[in-house]
Computed example of a mutant assay.
Amino acid sequence: MISTLILTKNEEIDLPGCLESLFWCTDIHVFDSYSSDATIDIALKAGVTLTQRKFDDYASQRNAALNQLDFKFDWVLILDADERIPPALIPQLLSNVQQAKPSVNGFRIQRRDYLGKSWLKHAQISPLYIRLVRRGKASYHRAINEVLQVDGLVQLIDGHFDHYPFSKGFSHWLNKHNNYSTMEARRWIEEQNGAEQFSLVKALSSKDFSERRFHQKGLFYKLPARPLIKWFYMVFGRRAFLDGWAGLTYATLQAIYEYLIVLKTNEMIDVTPVEVLEVVPATLAKKFRRLQTSYFRMQSKQIEA
Rank of each mutant, 00 (worst) to 15 (best):
T293G: 12
K101R: 13
E258W: 11
I144R: 02
F23R: 14
T283V: 09
L156H: 04
A305I: 13
L79I: 07
F23T: 05
S21Y: 09
Q299H: 12
H215V: 12
P224E: 04
F241P: 02
P87C: 10
R108C: 12
K287S: 14
L228I: 07
C25F: 12
G159W: 00
Y250K: 05
D56C: 14
R111G: 10
R238A: 13
A203W: 10
F71W: 09
Y34N: 11
P86W: 07
F288H: 06
L156N: 00
R238T: 05
T283M: 15
D113E: 15
I109R: 03
R239G: 05
I28L: 13
K72A: 15
A285M: 13
R84E: 09
I261S: 02
W188I: 01
T8P: 03
K117I: 11
T51Y: 08
A100Y: 00
Q292W: 14
N179K: 12
H177K: 07
W188N: 00
P91W: 06
K176C: 10
E275G: 04
D151L: 07
I13G: 05
Q110D: 04
L50K: 02
G136H: 09
G169T: 02
F31G: 02
F241R: 01
Y233V: 10
Y164N: 00
R290H: 09
P273F: 04
F296H: 03
N67Q: 13
L223P: 01
G244P: 00
N96P: 00
P86I: 02
Q52G: 08
G116M: 07
E83D: 05
D151Y: 03
P86F: 02
K286H: 07
R213I: 11
V235C: 09
H160K: 00
A143L: 08
Q99M: 09
K202N: 09
I157A: 00
K202Q: 13
A65D: 04
L242S: 02
